[in-house]
Design a protein around this nucleic acid. Sequence first.
DNA 1: TAGTGGTGTTACTAGCGGTAACACGAGTCT
DNA 2: AGACTCGTGTTACCGCTAGTAACACCACTA
Lengths: 214, 214
Amino acid sequence: MDTTQRTDQQRSADRRRRELLEAADRVVLRDGPQASMNAIAAEAGITKPILYRHFGDKGGLYAALATRHTDALLASLRAALDAPADRRERVEATLDTYLAAIEARPQVYRFLMHPAEGSAGGDHGFDVGKHSAPLLRRMGEELAQVIEERLDLGPGSQQLARVWGHGIVGMMHAAGDWWLGERPCSRAELVRSLADLLWGRLAAAGDRVGGPGF
Amino acid sequence: MDTTQRTDQQRSADRRRRELLEAADRVVLRDGPQASMNAIAAEAGITKPILYRHFGDKGGLYAALATRHTDALLASLRAALDAPADRRERVEATLDTYLAAIEARPQVYRFLMHPAEGSAGGDHGFDVGKHSAPLLRRMGEELAQVIEERLDLGPGSQQLARVWGHGIVGMMHAAGDWWLGERPCSRAELVRSLADLLWGRLAAAGDRVGGPGF
DNA sequence: TAGTGGTGTTACTAGCGGTAACACGAGTCT
DNA sequence: AGACTCGTGTTACCGCTAGTAACACCACTA
């Protein structure tokens, strides 16, 4: 039970855990978010109780799975957000990165947006205000931080940055989800339209003839 | 089996249906979106198969339930959107109406955002791009229509209006969800911050000292 | 040789959505 | 009257799920 021994065991457990996660990944990407624990165990070549020993419950497994993908996506977004270009170009690059990601791997996207639905049992005093996927929350917080660091918004800047961070992320998400389902235009056009919205074209647009503007 | 008879029966069935919906409403508002069909049937004083005869499956019941609340909320939003005031005031009124609704009845809000999760069984060729709740889609489409009717956006206005409709709704939803969970500021402040975002303050903000702006 | 810890199994529980089969009461046709 | 249908209700079941208890094996150690 010396240190070396325990390290070896831990290393082995970690490796096993990674293998299980990869198997779970395959199943979730194939069957969608309702992939059953039985199916995942079968894909990994083992049986259910082992999954429960490693991840506690379904929520734990899904959280571990989601963290991997979320981290990867957030890294890409950070890179786009940090590119050496002016603000509009950075915003467009970030939007495009996100949209390219959900376009390239829609199953991953679907999973990240609805990871743990019917998992926990009796949540009677239930969590109001936490319906967005964790990914959205994390993206919102990250964006808020970038905004607050880089923009001069005057008094109340921190709070404003957080509102904007979550708001912009929500805009991106909803528009992207709709776009992915209907494909009404190219990705570049969507990016441009959203950036135009953020750039105040809504406020600047003229009223249509025949009545006061929206 | 004459017309009067059939009308009587239909009327009775409709009345029953409404009673069942009200019972389901009570249970869903009490237990959250995972309320079981057994629980709903018990609340209504009957047993499961009757629910299935009236609504087909759980998705049908939940859809009927969601439609009621969604229609009500959309009516309020339309009223705010049609108020006699200038554009900014209308936008703020609409945002405030939505936020007031989710603040006043968070359980309804929660249900509308996650109505039918683990319902249908084998959806293997699965619906990519339809993860937002139907409420969000409907709000996005309605807003798009209003924008397209009232604003002069130049060429490609219809497509632009739809992107903006869904984007703005997503912004409102994500910011509202975050705000409802953390309550970092008053509703009025949130409304003002979001309207400022839509009014181009992001583009207009100056860079912070020490580097190029976000 | 006995013991210990990790890995794996089978077999089970409780609850879910959904359904088949049956029972009762009311109105209708012959 | 008697048979027939139809809507409403029930009980008892199916197949599935998440999650668990109990047992078996295998390697390593004292």
